[in-house]
Computed example of a mutant assay.
Amino acid sequence: MWQPKVAVYFQEGGFVLMRKYIPNQHGAWAMLILPFLFGVASSKGQFIHIPLFVCWLLIYLFSFPLLQWVKTGKLERYLQPMRVYGILLLPFILYLVLAEPKLLGFVLPLVPLFAVNLYYAKTKNERALLNDICAILAFCLIIYPVFYVGKGESWGAATELFLLSVLYFIGTALYVKTIIRERNNIRFYYGSVLYHLLFAVAGLLLFLTLLAPLVILLLRAAILPKTGITAKRTGMIEIGFSLMLYVSVLVLYF
């Protein structure tokens, strides 16, 4: 269908603008949200969870252009989104620090993990598995401050959910690589399947009530890479798997 050149120009301009402000890493959204929800599930819903989530979201939105700047060196392209998100972020940080000063302590483990992300961005090797694992650990650590401000009673339950999140997202990173960058690497495929098999076996010891969803994740890792599924569809379907795990935790775990 024919479109006026002006319309096409504005559509393309809007797309470029969205790429500057909205991260295109689909899997990161699940890592941003699921551990936070696990933290709420292991504690009690509190009003402070709302500004804490907004702060967590803005930290992610700020860090994405920051990493892109470090990777590309194009400060002029990423300065504006960093400025916008930084300005939006400051009042939330100030409110949370005044309301719960001990939240600052939960930031400390994030510093070395983000330093690794900066290193891999600088070396343009952000697809490295170690970089993925450090990012996963950083995302999953949000469980603890969410649990703390939610006045949770069992740090053991929070730690179990932290481990569940980390193991799930590491498995997801391996599985996604078998579809995209390692799709022709049969050894990597078998490594991913083996990891999910061990994850399911670990479920017998750590997360017995969650064995069924862990087996489903194993089948996902074994079957879907053989179907020729696209990266975009993989990201969309992964939202469903994340939702399955969250509902399973709510229904079976607590």
Rank of each mutant, 00 (worst) to 15 (best):
N184Y: 03
I179K: 05
R183Y: 08
A135I: 04
L130T: 10
I179R: 10
A173D: 14
K102P: 01
Y120M: 00
L108D: 02
S165C: 07
L94M: 08
I143T: 03
G150Q: 10
N184S: 10
D132I: 11
A158Q: 15
L104Q: 05
I180H: 03
T159M: 00
T178I: 11
L130K: 02
D132N: 08
N184M: 05
N185D: 15
L110A: 15
V201C: 08
I136L: 10
L198D: 15
P145T: 09
L103Y: 02
K177P: 05
A157V: 12
N125T: 04
K124T: 07
G171E: 04
I143C: 00
E160D: 05
L167S: 12
G156D: 13
L104Y: 11
V201G: 07
A115G: 11
C140F: 14
K102D: 07
L141G: 01
F106Y: 08
Y195G: 15
G191D: 03
P112C: 07
V146H: 10
K151F: 06
L161I: 00
F188K: 01
G191R: 05
R181Y: 01
N125D: 09
T172S: 14
N125M: 06
V97Y: 03
T178N: 15
P145N: 08
P112V: 10
I136V: 09
A128E: 06
P109S: 02
L94R: 02
A99F: 11
V149G: 06
L167E: 01
K102C: 03
I170W: 12
Y190K: 13
Y168T: 14
D132C: 13
K102G: 10
F188A: 14
S192L: 05
L141E: 05
T172L: 15
Y168C: 12
V107R: 03
I180R: 07
A135R: 01
R127K: 03
K151L: 06
L167D: 02
I143F: 03
V166T: 08
V146E: 02
I142E: 08
L161M: 00
V176G: 06
S165A: 12
L103G: 00
L167H: 02
K151P: 07
F199K: 09
V193I: 14
V149Q: 04
I179G: 13
G152M: 10
Y119G: 06
H196Q: 09
V111R: 11
A157W: 15
L113V: 03
L94P: 04
K177G: 08
L174E: 00
A158T: 13
H196R: 01
L164H: 06
A115H: 09
E160W: 11
Y144G: 13
A173R: 05
Y190S: 09
T159Q: 00
F199S: 13
L197H: 02
L174K: 12
Y119I: 09
L130I: 05
F169V: 01
A158D: 13
K177Q: 15
L137D: 03
N185C: 13
K124I: 01
G191C: 14
C134A: 06
L167W: 04
E160M: 12
L108H: 01
P145E: 06
Y190R: 12
V201F: 07
Y189V: 08
T123W: 04
R181K: 12
V149I: 08
Y190L: 15
S192P: 09
G203I: 14
P112S: 04
Y95F: 14
A99Y: 12
Y189A: 00
I170V: 15
G191M: 12
F106K: 01
R183I: 04
N117K: 08
R183C: 02
A115D: 05
I179H: 06
Y168L: 13
P112D: 07
P109R: 07
